[in-house]
Simulated assay, not measured.
Amino acid sequence: MDNFAQNNYTLNNWMTATPAIDTLSLCELTLPGTHNAGSDWKASWPLIPGAHWLACQHQSFYAQLSHGSRALDIRLMYDADAQGLGKFCIHHNGYRNGRTLGHLVTDVEKFLQENPNEFIILDFHELKGEQFDFAYFNSMMMLFLGRRMIPTKNRSLSLRQLKQISSTQRILVAAPWHRALDQNVFHEQIGHKWSGSGITNAADLEKHIINVLKYPPGTWAPWSLSATSYSALGGPVDIHDELNSWFDPKKSDWALKCNIINVDFIEESNIVSYCRMVNLMKASKRN
């Protein structure tokens, strides 16, 4: 394993720099993900309850992708009075911040232009609001990211096969089902394995993860493990020491059993390098 860890690679293109993993599909890989990806400290937050209760990441979507995140957990709510992509606002527990779908599509496009052979899962976990305009959301996604979206029929193909089919299709987009969403490119909603409790300390989280990984979901569809902690006193908690201990492939098989590991404050832990290491392990078993 030490040989893997010492390979020179940068976080922004870790998949491209690890061609051995191209034999695996997005459902088979272990991917570092960012929980509440649009809820970051750099966004503009309401004074009450304040950013420290709501921010789960340090920086923008683009920065998260550049730090190695490959699955963005997105929560949108609808604002009929806003203009264009501003109608689709990022929120955390109903509290909006300044981020919108416009920031997301711009950041993703910029990242993929710079790193054309990285793959991203856009996990639209919530599309909220009685008036949510699914048809407009569909048309805006197709307009700005349509050429990037991996068709649903290709979900189980390996990265190598996906690259052979297209030089631009690099995003698996998943969302709650709605008849106005094009089922050819909108994959079914990704299941989140979370503790079920809004307040979760590290010990409770560890028990939850142990429980999930006794019988982890299969590799026919993407799934996400919520490896996040929240305190009643301070909001989202930075648990990078615990993450580094739990998911280190030298210490456990946890990372091997996962698909998306959904974490807060992605820059703080070694989760990206652990994912890369276990993906090389998975690929070597395949060959």
Results as ranks from 00 to 15, higher is better:
225 L>N: 03
12 N>M: 10
79 D>M: 13
161 Q>D: 10
238 D>P: 12
197 S>D: 09
240 H>C: 00
139 S>Y: 02
112 L>G: 08
215 Y>H: 15
157 L>E: 01
69 S>V: 11
107 D>G: 04
63 A>Q: 13
180 A>L: 14
45 W>N: 10
204 D>M: 15
20 A>H: 07
95 Y>Q: 02
28 E>H: 09
47 L>W: 14
281 M>H: 12
173 V>H: 07
172 L>D: 00
7 N>K: 15
93 N>D: 07
96 R>F: 14
283 A>V: 06
241 D>R: 14
56 C>W: 01
256 L>W: 04
237 V>D: 01
142 M>K: 15
7 N>L: 15
253 D>I: 13
92 H>T: 01
155 R>W: 00
19 P>Y: 11
185 V>T: 06
270 N>G: 02
249 P>T: 09
161 Q>P: 12
118 E>R: 14
22 D>F: 15
56 C>L: 08
81 D>L: 15
278 V>C: 02
133 D>G: 11
193 K>H: 11
275 C>G: 03
27 C>I: 07
189 Q>S: 13
287 N>M: 15
273 S>C: 13
230 Y>G: 08
64 Q>M: 13
164 Q>Y: 14
240 H>P: 04
49 P>S: 03
109 E>A: 14
149 M>H: 09
50 G>M: 04
233 L>G: 12
120 I>T: 00
145 L>T: 02
20 A>W: 07
104 L>Q: 01
272 V>K: 00
101 L>C: 11
30 T>V: 10
89 C>M: 15
156 S>N: 14
106 T>E: 05
158 S>P: 09
12 N>Q: 09
49 P>L: 12
170 R>F: 06
39 S>I: 10
62 Y>T: 05
41 W>H: 13
134 F>Q: 04
7 N>D: 11
127 L>E: 04
154 N>K: 10
70 R>S: 05
209 I>S: 04
34 T>D: 00
110 K>D: 05
193 K>I: 01
103 H>Y: 08
45 W>Y: 12
50 G>Q: 10
286 R>P: 08
181 L>Y: 03
213 L>R: 03
194 W>R: 06
271 I>T: 03
42 K>Y: 07
54 L>C: 09
35 H>A: 04
156 S>E: 10
96 R>D: 01
151 P>E: 05
179 R>F: 11
102 G>R: 12
178 H>I: 02
81 D>Q: 14
284 S>K: 15
220 W>G: 11
15 M>P: 01
61 F>S: 04
19 P>D: 08
221 A>G: 11
219 T>L: 13
7 N>F: 14
17 A>H: 10
94 G>Q: 03
206 E>W: 14
17 A>F: 12
72 L>C: 09
266 I>A: 06
121 I>S: 00
68 G>N: 06
197 S>P: 12
152 T>P: 07
150 I>D: 07
172 L>E: 06
40 D>G: 13
147 R>K: 13
76 L>Y: 09
82 A>N: 06
91 H>A: 06
68 G>E: 02
137 F>I: 07
147 R>C: 10
243 L>A: 01
251 K>V: 03
201 N>T: 08
152 T>V: 14
191 G>Q: 10
146 G>S: 05
70 R>Q: 01
13 N>R: 15
88 F>E: 05
127 L>P: 06
166 S>G: 03
237 V>C: 08
168 T>E: 05
271 I>N: 02
52 H>F: 14
191 G>L: 15
